[in-house]
């Protein structure tokens, strides 16, 4: 027995040489669906992501401890659309058209240029969408810090991140009309115009003696109505946006 072992040992060692050593990290194993920046990119061509009834993909990256992203992640990811961020306890529909969100710079963001191709009337909101933000009010330092973070994220087109930061700020200062306005702006730039209009209306309902802010909210509402094909409503909102 011992002799066999001694003979076997070098052979085993040789045998081990026959298979090529692993190069690079192990490949990720997909269960189904996918995830990653690539998923978001796919959504870029279309209007806001279409809700699908499928469950989102969960992908497993074996042998990767927290925090390290496997290099294969981006190419391995396939587009997987989130189901709508549906309601609540009874599982009913969410207001607006917001789907469950995935991270990434442009997750679910239709470029504005393409949006205007789809809806000819969207040319006006396109210019409106990039209006300078209304005057920033004096906020408590915690909310203000988050607001500035969010604004940076928004300018870098990290809309999902900006929205998350603004929601965090809203948890701290839920009555701040300005924060609701900024979230509306982010949603508008993402192409979620109906939700943007709702958020702008919420901002308006909280705004006091802030004509600039209210006008900006009406600008967002006008853009949303135009995107929905409501030309008359958009015109009325635009009149309010210009202080009329």
């Amino acid at each position: 027995m011992k002799r066999l072992f001694l003979i076997g040992l070098p052979l085993v060692a040789m045998a081990a040489c026959t298979t090529a050593p692993r190069i690079g990290p192990p490949a990720p194993i997909e269960t189904r669906g996918g995830w990653g920046p690539g998923a978001a990119a796919n959504a870029g061509g279309a209007a806001p992501p279409q809700p699908q009834a499928q469950t989102p993909g969960v992908q497993v990256y074996p042998y990767h401890a927290p925090g390290t992203a496997p290099p294969g992640a981006s190419q391995a990811s396939a587009a997987a659309q989130a189901p709508p961020g549906q309601g609540s306890l009874a599982g009913g529909g969410a207001p607006g058209e917001l789907p469950m969100e995935r991270p990434g710079n442009q997750a679910g963001v239709p470029p504005l240029a393409q949006q205007s191709e789809q809806t000819p009337s969207a040319r006006q909101p396109q210019t409106l969408a990039y209006a300078p933000p209304p005057k920033r009010p004096v906020l408590p330092p915690a909310a203000d810090a988050l607001l500035q973070d969010a604004e940076r994220q928004r300018q870098m087109r990290d809309y999902v991140g900006a929205a998350a930061t603004l929601e965090r700020a809203l948890r701290i200062e839920p009555q701040q009309a300005y924060l609701w306005n900024r979230l509306a702006q982010v949603r508008l730039q993402q192409g979620y115009s109906a939700q943007a209009a709702n958020l702008a209306a919420r901002s308006n309902s909280l705004a006091r003696d802030e004509p600039g802010l209210k006008q900006d909210n009406w600008r967002i509402i006008a853009a949303a109505r135009r995107a929905a094909g409501d030309a008359a409503g958009a015109a009325a909102a635009e009149q309010k946006a210009s202080g009329g």
Partner: peptide, 30 residues
Amino acid sequence: GGFRAPLRAIRDVLDASGRPLNRYPLAVQQ
């Protein structure tokens, strides 16, 4: 103030390596 926000129990989900997977965003409707 008349703005319905669907009740939610989950904010977001990360995968095992700590990367963001899904978020349940705040949505309101007047």
